Simulated scan of single mutants.
Amino acid sequence: MDLVTLDDIRAAAALLDGIAVRTPLLRFDDHLRLKPENLQPIGAFKIRGAYNAIARLSDDARERGVVAYSSGNHAQAVAHAARVFGVPAVIVLPDSAPAVKIDATRALGAEVVLVPVEERESRAHALVEERGATLVPPYDHPNVIAGQGTVGLEIVADAPDLAIVLTPVSGGGLLSGVATAVKALRPDVKVVGVEPELAADTAASLRAGRLVRWPTADRSRTIADGLRAEPSELTFAHLRAHVDEVVTVTEAEIEAAVALIARRARIVAEPSGAVAVAAHLRSPTPGSVAVVSGGNIDPALFTRLTEVR
Rank of each mutant, 00 (worst) to 15 (best):
V117G: 00
N52H: 13
V90Q: 11
V189N: 01
L34N: 00
A82T: 12
G273V: 10
A274H: 03
Y51F: 15
A237H: 01
P187Q: 09
E197R: 14
V243D: 07
V246Y: 06
A97T: 11
L108F: 13
G171Q: 14
A126L: 02
L175N: 03
N52P: 11
T250R: 02
W214M: 09
H74R: 10
L26W: 01
V169T: 14
I42T: 15
P36E: 09
Q76F: 12
R210Q: 10
L162G: 02
G18Q: 14
R309F: 02
G171F: 13
F45R: 09
H125G: 02
T105E: 06
A184F: 13
A184V: 13
I164M: 00
R22Q: 15
W214T: 02
T180F: 08
R309L: 08
G18T: 14
S220K: 04
A279G: 09
L301M: 08
I54V: 15
L162V: 05
E270W: 08
L206Q: 10
D161R: 05
Q76H: 12
G72Q: 06
P284I: 10
A269W: 07
H280Y: 00
W214K: 05
L206R: 09
V144R: 07
V194Q: 02
V291P: 05
A107C: 05
A269V: 06
T105L: 07
P138Y: 04
V156I: 08
L281W: 01
T216M: 12
I254M: 07
K35T: 00
L211E: 09
T105M: 06
A276C: 04
L15D: 13
V292F: 03
G172P: 14
P168E: 04
L135S: 07
L34K: 01
P116M: 00
S220V: 00
I91G: 05
A279E: 07
V189H: 04
R264S: 09
D30L: 09
V289G: 00
P94R: 03
A14G: 15
A181S: 14
V194I: 00
V115G: 01
G226R: 01
D298I: 02
A107Q: 14
E270A: 07
A179D: 04
I145S: 06
D60L: 03
A99Q: 13
V156L: 07
K101P: 12
A157K: 01
H74F: 07
E119M: 04
R213H: 11
D60V: 07
V291S: 05
T216V: 13
I54F: 11
E253H: 00
A300T: 09
V136K: 06
E37H: 04
D161V: 03
R207K: 14
L260P: 02
H125Y: 06
L15A: 06
G152F: 11
R240V: 06
A224Q: 04
P137D: 05
K190F: 00
D298V: 04
A97K: 08
